[in-house]
Computed example of a mutant assay.
Amino acid sequence: MNVDELKKDIQAYAKTIGIDEIGFAAADIFTELKERLRRQQELNYQSGFEKGSIEERTEPKRLLPEAQSIISIAVAYPSRMDNTPRGTKGDRRGIFARASWGIDYHVALKERLDKLGEYIQERVPDAVVKSMVDTGELSDRAVAERAGVGFSGKNTSIITKEHGSFVYLGEMLTNIPFIPDSPIEDGCGDCTICLDACPTGALIQGGQLNAQRCIAFLTQTKDFLPEEFRNKIGNRLYGCDTCQQVCPWNRDKDAHFHEELEPDPELVKPRLRPMLHLSNREFKEKFGHMSGSWRGKKPIQRNVIIALGHYKEKTAEEDLVAVMKRDPRPVIRGTAAWSLGKIGTDTAREALAETLEKEDDEQVQFEIENALSVMKVK
């Protein structure tokens, strides 16, 4: 087996199956990442969504004992869409982050990695491969950085020279000893635009993120959202693109290479009020193919309610009162109370006071009382 020729053939084949960037790295321990993860853990900066122990996330051979190399892939996705619907007073809309446009990227990348793995095993029958996308133990970004796919920006995203940071990442462990590609030079320099633009100050310093303050993480939580973040979320229903939107490397980057990743404008910028009334089945049928649906309906509906409060949308008052009084989920009832407090009408005040007499959940009671107190200050 000529490994150099095989590598060139894999690079060529990757282009034919919709892989936009590919790089090769050694399956050595990610020593620097290990220290960074330990520090993140000490500072409680982790999201809680991470899979595996620090050792599993930084030692490839724990996942595939015979691993010699890691193949990193990147697939570019759109940053703009045509015919973007506009929300208006009385007809407000939310927004899903670009990473949730089109079909779930886990599916899109897994299909490509499966094809790549089959191709490799056809060429090398005794090849061993193990692929993962985002939900695996390995850090997609650390692998991509080592493999020269891109550099790690101060916004903690991998930034590729051709496509900016609007790329999905995945990787494949293999026992084939490929010659590694070289990492590319850091391209951020003294720029701090992303740090300055972060709505919650989640980017502590170049390359360090406090996930507990990151809107992209917060929109995926299922509990009550801390008060300090509610106004900052605005109309975001899933994810946050701010640190990518402001990045100079993303200027004029807008990849429309893959039909399955194209956004449906009515799904990625949906009307808010109808989303309050979706059943679980309706939610899955409408949004289930999108990565933004992975946590289910509850976080999205909570964020819908926050967005309506953010807009002080009086036309949603009746819907919010019904939710506050009848929804079985305390987080949804309590968030509706907060939103009604933001709207601040006499009708909202009366509904809050009436509901407080019957509500038996302590956290919901707190939210109602807080909403009423805010309205008194007004």
Rank of each mutant, 00 (worst) to 15 (best):
E55H: 09
A97I: 06
F283R: 08
I22R: 08
W101H: 00
S131C: 14
R349H: 11
E262A: 12
V374S: 15
P226R: 06
E145A: 14
T242V: 06
K253L: 07
A197Q: 04
R251W: 07
I332Q: 00
Y45P: 07
S293W: 06
A12K: 15
P65K: 15
E162M: 07
L33E: 13
P78Q: 05
E354M: 14
I70Q: 02
D134M: 10
E227P: 13
I300E: 05
P274F: 03
L138Y: 02
W249G: 04
G201A: 07
R80E: 11
K7V: 10
S100I: 07
E35M: 09
G148Q: 03
A371M: 04
K34Q: 14
R112M: 01
I368Q: 07
K115M: 06
R57G: 03
V246N: 03
Q208M: 15
F287C: 08
G309N: 08
N44W: 12
V128M: 15
D9C: 11
S279E: 03
H258K: 00
D82M: 12
Q244N: 11
E318C: 10
I368L: 01
E350H: 13
G153H: 06
E66C: 12
A142C: 10
S279W: 04
E359T: 08
Q41W: 07
A147N: 01
P248L: 09
L320C: 05
G23T: 05
S291V: 11
R98T: 04
H163W: 11
S157I: 15
I54S: 02
L267R: 00
F287I: 09
D140Y: 00
Q40F: 13
M132H: 13
L356V: 03
D360G: 11
E35S: 14
A216H: 09
S79T: 12
T315Q: 12
P226G: 01
A76N: 11
F283K: 02
M172H: 07
D126L: 12
T347V: 12
R329L: 15
F287K: 06
M290H: 13
D346F: 14
S152P: 11
A337L: 01
S47H: 03
I204T: 13
L113T: 09
M132A: 15
H106M: 05
V331C: 07
P265N: 06
C240G: 03
D140R: 02
K154T: 15
G150M: 00
T174W: 04
S53V: 10
T160E: 03
A142E: 13
V374I: 12
Q245I: 15
F257C: 10
Y168A: 05
